[in-house]
Write a protein that binds this DNA or RNA. Structure first.
Length: 697
RNA sequence: GCGGCUGUGGUUUAGUGGUAUGACAUGAGCUUCCCAAGCUUAUAACCCGGGUUCGAAUCCCGGCAGCCGCACCA
């Protein structure tokens, strides 16, 4: 069972992701978000809004998911997304049918599928793969857009949008006015997009209906610096530039270099500041959403894979267990392609005036034709002649006659019917079409990656947290030692302290002692007991908190996951063999669907009543709480670990005496005791700043 | 879309031409003073359609879904 299966199994079992339409047999490429999945998705979208809408001031808009045909003709999707295909029945290779006949007809685009098929048959086209003749099957239309009709007449074609971006481009002129006609400005949209994939087989990685979060930032094409670049230029991110991808591109990560974005721009790796700024923003978002920075890289498009109009393009990619590196975000400088194309197709000017800092004085000639002469001379053509004259440049006016062309006809105009003079004009700016920076996020893939990256299987219980002994974990250490080793009940009342530069923990009681020593590199540890027993322990750094945790089995270096099989360690005599593990989602608190679980220690009325009151208190303070009193407390902790609940509040008999409860941390399993009246505030502080954070004053 | 393999409770699994085994999970109850699987008990399945047959979940065909390979992948 690989990690993907575990994640999908967990997601299905616990209500994150379900295959859609399962009741009727299911359909590939569609997933439902269950209660936990939908909650988590909303939280991730809200983080995105926090960064782009609130942080950058890019207002969010909402446009229809159905678009009319001209929009997607202009965007290139109608032609770019729809290809006639045919399959060779001999070798089963699929080909673009229009490419097969491109030497026979000049514009195969205009032919219908049956016409192409006919041409292939008539000209005995060979299969480029196997050379077979007459083996091609029917030509079928390979359209990645879902088609529909608008209205009852069935005449007007509509398409489900294949990306959210076009809704923003076609509102450009209104948006520009909304932003008081200043560049740069940005606009965002989060919504569904649709692509009728041929065979979506990678679960939630390739969907037919998916959620995109996109920002379109319209910038001055003459100036791609970013006003806040200095604030982020020292941020280090993992670049995988095109120049380092030559050999064996996809699988290895050797070409990745870590650089500050400032250096990346200076060295010409990233085209300009504006793009680099958005790489940083993307990086920040992904880490907040639960992506492991060590399994994240920014890959630059090769010149030949980039769209012809794009200036520079970077994909954020995450490393997944089954699929390798997967694109989850694309960040492109699309130049003026989209706006120019919509301007051409819609016949609306989408250029903007860029005002100069100081108006320029420009010399210009003004032509003054004598209409009383030109009118009678050219009669019906006089209007067109006039227009042609006004476009003339100074050098055209030398000589005795002026040559112009009207409707393909050369006309010579006597020099003396046209007067001109030179004037000095003040030019305040120029017309340009803004360039577009487009970060485009695949939310569903990000959710999968966050699940996989935060997933951990601990087959063996953690003995204790090194950094919390002595301290919060002393009690756990004592208990674990008694569970794992026989005949050392004396540790129950033993003193525990740390010495030798914090590299040794000593446990002392009368004549008995034990010590645990960690090596210099903090990779291994050993335990020695005064009765002569000893054994090796392993050390693991916490996924989120960076603290050191001690386990009884080796930790895999590659994945950081605790290995299942103990290697050559000789089991200590008296070791209890049975040990238990747990599934944990180390999701950031901000992303976890359930934020706090409220658990009475025992299923008893005297504990249930106060627990339910505490649920109310927390809910009123805006925290998403689940309440659970079924089974033992340990099982309930595990249930919540598995869905990533960061904190559990436990009500015990001390609660009845002194009004305190414990808060248990998912990652370290450490508990702290707090007053009920401070609980809500404390939980809010922990969700912001981590476990056991103090309440800010 | 093509080829190969697969399809049993929520998950996983045993099994046979005469409707099915176990485990985990879940519910109820008991037990339990902090890290799952102790007790009692309950619920729950043979992907869908057609064919062969007295009878099919088991055999055959088709569909759907999953996995693998080919092709495709803004």
């Amino acid at each position: 069972m690989d990690t993907y299966e575990k994640i999908i199994g967990l997601a299905k079992r616990r209500g994150f992701l379900w295959n859609s339409f399962e009741l009727y047999g299911g359909t590939a490429g569609f997933y439902d978000y269950g209660p936990l999945g939908a909650t988590m998705k909303r939280r991730i979208e809200d983080i995105w809004r926090d960064i782009y809408v609130i942080g950058e001031g890019f207002y969010e808009i909402e446009t229809p998911t159905i678009g009319i045909e001209p929009v997607f003709v202009a965007s290139g999707h109608v032609h770019g997304f729809s290809d006639p295909m045919t399959v060779c029945s001999n070798c089963d290779s699929a080909f673009r049918a229009d490419h097969l006949i491109k030497d026979i007809v000049e514009i195969p685009d205009t032919l219908s599928a049956p016409e192409i098929k006919q041409l292939i048959d008539e000209h005995d086209i060979k299969c480029p793969q196997c050379g077979g003749v007459g083996m091609f099957g029917e030509v079928f239309d390979f359209n990645l857009m879902f088609k529909t009709t608008i209205g009852s007449g069935t005449q007007r074609m509509g398409y489900l949008r294949p990306e959210t971006a076009q809704g923003m481009f076609i509102n450009f002129d209104r948006l520009f006015r909304f932003y008081r006609e200043k560049l740069p400005f940005g606009v965002t949209q989060i919504g569904k997009a649709y692509r009728n994939e041929i065979s979506p087989r990678q679960g939630v990685i390739r969907l037919r209906e998916f959620t995109q979060a996109e920002a379109e930032i319209f910038i001055n094409p003459r100036d791609k610096s970013h006003p806040r670049f200095s604030t982020i230029k020292n941020t280090v991110i993992r670049f995988y530039p095109a120049s380092r991808q030559q050999n064996d591109s996809d699988s290895d990560s050797d070409g990745v270099i870590e650089l500050t974005v400032g250096d990346a721009v200076d060295q010409g790796i990233v085209a300009h500041e504006f793009l680099a700024y958005h790489l940083v923003l993307t990086n920040r978002f992904l880490v907040r959403a639960g992506i492991d920075p060590a399994r994240l890289r920014f890959r630059q498009h090769q010149p030949d894979e980039m769209a012809h109009y794009a200036v520079d393009c970077w994909d954020a990619e995450v490393l997944t267990d089954r699929f390798g590196w997967v694109e989850i975000v694309g960040i492109a400088d699309r130049a003026d392609y989209d706006l120019s194309s919509h301007a051409n197709h819609s016949q609306h000017d989408l250029s903007v005036v860029l005002e100069y800092d100081t108006p320029k004085q420009v010399e210009r000639i003004v032509i003054k034709p004598d209409m009383s002469m030109i009118g009678p001379l050219y009669k019906g053509k006089a209007g067109k002649v006039l227009a042609a004259l006004k476009n003339l440049k100074e050098e055209d006016l030398n000589g005795d006659e002026i040559n112009i062309t009207v409707d393909g006809e050369e006309i010579r105009i006597p020099r003396d019917v046209v007067e001109y003079e030179t004037v000095i004009e003040e030019v305040r700016g120029e017309n340009v079409i803004p360039h577009v920076i487009e970060p485009s996020f695949g939310i569903d893939r990000i959710i999968y990656a966050a699940l996989e990256h935060s997933f951990e299987e601990e087959p063996v219980r953690c003995l204790f947290c090194w950094d919390r002994v002595p301290g919060n974990d002393s009690r756990r250490l004592r208990k674990r030692l008694m569970e794992v080793y026989t005949g050392i009940d004396w540790v129950e009342n033993a003193e525990i302290h740390k010495s030798y530069g914090c590299k040794t923990i000593r446990i002392l009681k009368d004549e008995n002692s034990a010590e645990i020593i960690i090596d210099e590199k903090e990779e291994k540890a050993t335990i020695k007991i005064s009765d002569g027993r000893f054994g090796s322990l392993s050390v693991k750094k916490g996924v989120r908190d960076g603290l050191l945790y001690i386990y009884r089995v080796p930790v895999s270096e590659k994945t950081g996951v605790v290995a299942r099989t103990a290697t050559k360690e000789i089991p200590l005599p008296g070791t209890i063999i049975r040990e238990s593990g747990r599934y944990v989602l180390h999701l950031p608190a901000e992303v976890a669907p359930v934020q706090v679980a409220v658990l009475p220690l025992l299923t008893r009325e005297e504990l249930i009543d106060p627990a339910i009151k505490i649920v109310d208190i927390l809910r009123r303070s805006g925290i998403f709480v689940s309440y659970d009193d079924a089974g033992t407390i340990g099982r309930r902790y595990r249930r919540n670990d598995e869905i990533g609940t960061p904190f559990s509040v436990t009500i015990d008999y001390d609660t009845l005496d002194d009004g305190t409860v414990t808060i248990r941390d998912r990652d370290s399993m450490v508990q702290v005791r707090v007053q009920v009246r401070e609980l809500a505030e404390k939980v809010h502080a922990m969700m912001r700043s981590g476990f056991d954070s103090p309440i800010p004053l």
